[in-house]
């Protein structure tokens, strides 16, 4: 059914340790080009660790990770990121001692059309333009999240990993963020970890449920919305 080259990312039986603890036992994920794929599941199931493993921050212990057909498992994080991955971590992790401009400047990679991408960022998040020269520690939670996403958008990435963008945000901000991510989705392939049902279902095309370090279920948006038992069984809602 699928043409193999259409898959930007493939994870096969990925296992990861954090220190001495075995966290991921077998994660299998396929992300199609141009799609938004969402990882769902209860806290502590291994969703964040999955994103960290893909980005190279936590090299896998076993399994293969194909980015655009090339095995990246075990490569250092900076090489994976440089080969076209944008990473938006769970806690935003903006560089608070740097200005917005500096945050974006050091995130821009070699061969990138910085000015053009900056236009794009400003269009999507006008606040970034407004506070461009200000230290990023003055930003509110929502703005910090925007900066964190902007850092990924400043490069033309093959894949953007976003970890729980809605975390700690007020509902009104979440709705605004949903709009933005839906715009980003048009030109980018996104792998999203999300607990917020509204965001997950309004952004995602395809869903995986991660539980106890394994991908236990996958489905399309239609299937997810049609079948309430999935929600009850895996998400406890």
């Amino acid at each position: 059914m699928d043409n193999i080259t259409e898959n930007i990312l493939e994870l096969h039986d990925v296992e990861t340790f954090i220190g001495q603890y075995h966290i991921l036992f077998g994660v299998n994920i396929t992300v199609r080009k141009g799609s938004a794929t969402v990882l769902l599941g209860r806290n502590g199931g291994g969703k964040t660790t999955t994103l960290e493993t893909i980005s190279g921050l936590r090299p896998p212990f076993a399994g293969t990770i194909l980015l655009d057909g090339k095995d990246i498992a075990g490569l250092p994080a900076y090489e994976i990121i440089q080969s076209g991955v944008g990473y938006v971590p769970e806690d935003r992790d903006i560089f608070s001692d740097l200005t917005i401009e500096e945050n974006l400047l050091i995130s821009s990679r070699k061969g990138n059309d910085y000015d053009k991408r900056l236009e794009l960022v400003f269009e999507l998040f006008p606040d970034m333009k407004k506070y461009f020269k200000k230290k990023s520690r003055i930003l509110s939670g929502g703005q910090a999240q925007m900066l964190s996403i902007s850092r990924a958008l400043i490069n033309d990435n093959k894949l953007i990993l976003i970890d729980e963008p809605s975390k700690g945000l007020a509902p009104i901000l979440i709705r605004e963020l949903i709009d933005r991510i839906n715009i980003i989705k048009k030109d980018n392939t996104v792998l999203l970890v999300e607990q917020n049902w509204e965001m997950a279902t309004s952004v995602g095309d395809y869903f995986y449920i991660v539980q106890d370090g394994m991908t236990v279920f996958e489905c399309t948006k239609e299937e997810l919305l049609a079948d309430d038992t999935i929600k009850q069984k895996y998400l406890g809602v």
């Binding site: 250092p76 994080a77 990121i81 992790d93 500096e102 050091i106």
Partner: peptide, 25 residues
């Protein structure tokens, strides 16, 4: 300088510097 910005960024959040594609080593 960009090096200086990276040093300041790394002093704040060393792990994240790798995650924006910088060879921290």
């Amino acid at each position: 300088t960009k090096l200086g910005m990276i040093i300041r960024a790394g002093t704040d959040k060393p792990r994240m510097v790798q995650a924006i594609g910088i060879n921290v080593a």
